Simulated assay, not measured.
Amino acid sequence: MLAPLVLPPLLLSSACGQSSSNAQSDAGPALSKTEAAQVLELYKVTADRASRRLDAKSLAAVETGPQLAMDTATFKLHRAAEHRVAGRGAGNASFGKPTFYIPRINGHPRWFAADVTAGTGKDTLRHAFVFTQAKPSDPWLLAADPHPSGAALTKIALDEEGYATTVRPSERELALQPARLPATHAALLSGGPKAPGAAGLAPGPQTTQAYDGLRRTQDRLMPGGITLSSHFTPEPGPVYALRTTDGGALVWYVVRQNEAYSSSKQGKLAVTGDLVGLAPPSAVKTHLDTVVLVQYLAAVPREGKARVTGMYRKAISAAGS
């Protein structure tokens, strides 16, 4: 396994944490573009090797937080279904030319984003990576990877030297504070667009349509004797936000979904699809509980509603009884 990449600390202020956008304008970049390219290359090599071996311990050298939990669950799925995917791992990534969005940040933790395309043809997938470094001596780790739609990343504002600007999670000049996005999105998915605390998100595939789709799934299962309950909550952890050219922000955040399937008769429930590898099929009799993490990317304007522009969803645990 390759050693984690630890870049030498830049000559920045020793102040810790994320300060305001104005204060950050005098800070140095989190790292250089050359160093960012090295971080991405090491990630690609290490993650691909871990994927070929379905080795989550190796993956932990280059990933952290929800990202590591979600990709570890993917490895379990591939390991359990290996005979059905011809031994194919979860990676073999070939990245196209990346675009880096490196903010000016005082102290640690530091982070940067990367717009990366992997694969070719119909298998092409776009990534909105976020890499973080907790302390100067720590490796850079992949913390987020929602798959963006449209050109949201190209709207990130850059200064004269080509660097981005962070946005405070508590910024009140936006239509919705970045720190409130996880709770707002969770409220909408749990109770619909009119639920308390759900205002501020625009209708779309990952908001109102996702809520309606879940309700239809519940209705479809009921005639077969299966009851599904689902509840969404904000996932603890940092929210990442960069200033956009319209004065708004592009925000990365995570929501947790807890699902419970119940049936009065055995044989109605099964471990299938995204749940394969997370629970022994024999353990599921009349009840199945699952935990799903969903990473989102949202564009928040100064006025109007925030629009969700990307996501990555994966079940990370399941338990039957």
Rank of each mutant, 00 (worst) to 15 (best):
P4V: 10
L5Q: 03
P8Q: 13
L10Y: 08
L12M: 07
S13D: 10
S21H: 05
Q24M: 11
S25N: 14
A27V: 01
E41Y: 14
K44W: 08
T46S: 08
D48A: 06
L54W: 05
A60F: 04
V62I: 09
M70P: 05
K76T: 10
L77F: 14
A81L: 14
G87H: 09
G87V: 10
R88A: 12
G89F: 00
A90M: 14
A90S: 14
G91Q: 04
N92M: 12
A93Y: 11
A93I: 11
S94E: 12
K97T: 15
P98K: 04
N106G: 10
G107T: 09
D115L: 07
V116R: 02
G121W: 15
L125C: 06
R126I: 01
A128F: 02
V130M: 00
F131E: 04
K135P: 07
D138G: 12
A143H: 08
P148T: 00
A152W: 01
D159F: 11
D159A: 11
G162I: 09
V167A: 02
S170I: 04
E173C: 05
R180D: 01
P193G: 02
P196G: 05
G197W: 02
A202I: 01
Q206F: 06
Q206L: 12
T207W: 03
L214A: 09
D219E: 15
P223W: 15
I226G: 00
L228V: 12
S229L: 10
S230E: 10
Y240L: 03
L242Q: 03
D246I: 11
G248H: 03
L250C: 01
V255F: 00
Q266H: 07
K268Y: 06
D274I: 11
D274G: 08
V276D: 04
A283F: 11
V284R: 01
H287T: 13
V291E: 06
V292E: 09
Q295L: 04
Q295M: 09
A298K: 00
A306C: 04
R307V: 06
M311G: 09
Y312Q: 00
S317I: 04
G320Q: 03
S321L: 12
